[in-house]
Design a binder for these strands. Structure first.
Lengths: 210, 210
DNA sequence: ACATAACTTGACCATAGGGTCAAGTTAAGG
DNA sequence: CCTTAACTTGACCCTATGGTCAAGTTATGT
């Protein structure tokens, strides 16, 4: 690869990281090119597809963040506190980083490496949930698949309250949900949990809805 | 108004009602005209703006539904049951009618009559909430403004699960929240409730988020 | 220094949406 | 039946998006 192409790729990566962060994974590619000070043709040349760009620019960063949060959550003495830490910290990330918000909410295209990362993240989440189950604090009928509800929800909520006079209001919404997830709060649920297949279907719809 | 114009207006109203119901209040005006079998120029001629069309086609219908649900909720013997009925029934409406879903979620443009209706609906909701507060079943720190969280959330959720193998999954999401709204489940909240002004701001963002 | 492969550009294609208006058509009153 | 005001149409304008490619430019090896 020629040196100028290398430089352009770098400028594009930087611009893409910024814009994805600000506006989410659906940010217009032409605007990324504009911000990088480069023709959009060059972007298509160097990266080909949005997915490739995402995989280069978002995946590793998101992986680091998600793994760090999961590690910390499992490190907490109290399993319930760990669970709450996991939910709340990911929700905080959703507020400050629209790209991660989309990742966590399952609102991402079929970027290969990103999907692999999400698989790993789900495994980590499962461990955190199981630990909270075993401690007795988390209601037993809450499953890993139910997390989509929490994060898809918070993606919308946090975007709506951001840049208003009450930018922290999402915490209130999440607090109501968390109070409903304690074992003492549990009442029988009206519906079976999602299967893996169903989760996949639902996530595809969340990704399409924009 | 000439008879042919009258007929066209009627065709447009019918098509608009259908499309709003299927796809929400942001359905393309040109597609409404297409479905009505009429030029989009005629739509602009007869209605002028999307807001005017919404006010003619959605507002009364939505008003009937919302008032009916509120009435029923207040008629329940048990205040908590009434509150749950209110939430669940509106959420059910959100599943079957995307127009009402937008109305309930606060995702509507500045259509005059529709906004007036929403004011009235909020008053009704306040009464239902107060009654549930007085009965002691609903946590005292839950306010009418917190309803946006519930309905904006369910607008997304229900759209994501609709047309999947688990079209009722939204009930699960709502059930977790409802369990968190009981007095026994309450733990201190991290944030003050939204003021009326803040609610307005948040709703404007919900409306802008497509 | 120059040939050439590598790279960049911007015009161009298409789609989808909002919106306007001159020109043509038609309902309806006299 | 014929005039005319009312109405309809669709071509046209704009913006924004995804995407392609011929033609022009430039870095780099020899």
């Amino acid at each position: 690869m020629r040196a100028d192409a290398q430089r352009n790729a770098e400028k594009l990566r930087t611009a893409a990281a910024e814009l994805f962060r600000e506006r989410g994974l659906q940010a217009p590619l032409k605007e990324i090119a504009r911000r990088a000070g480069v023709s959009h043709g060059t972007l298509y040349n160097l990266f080909g597809t949005r997915e490739a760009l995402i995989d280069e620019v978002v995946t590793d960063l998101a992986a680091d963040r998600l793994e760090e949060v999961a590690r910390h959550a499992l490190a907490q003495d109290d399993a319930w506190d760990g669970f709450v830490y996991y939910i709340e910290t990911l929700c905080e990330l959703q507020v400050t980083d629209a790209a991660i918000s989309d990742v966590v909410a399952g609102r991402y295209p079929n970027a290969e490496r990103l999907m692999a990362l999400c698989g790993r993240a789900r495994d980590a989440a499962t461990r955190i949930i199981e630990r909270a189950h075993e401690s007795g604090a988390l209601r037993p009928d809450f499953t890993g698949e139910d997390l989509v509800f929490v994060f898809a929800t918070n993606a919308v909520l946090s975007r709506a309250v951001k840049d208003t006079a009450a930018p922290d209001a999402w915490r209130r919404g999440i607090a109501f949900v968390l109070d409903g997830l304690r074992t003492e709060a549990a009442h029988p649920l009206p519906t079976a949990p999602l299967t893996g297949q169903q989760l996949y279907e639902v996530m595809a719809n969340v990704a399409a809805a924009r």
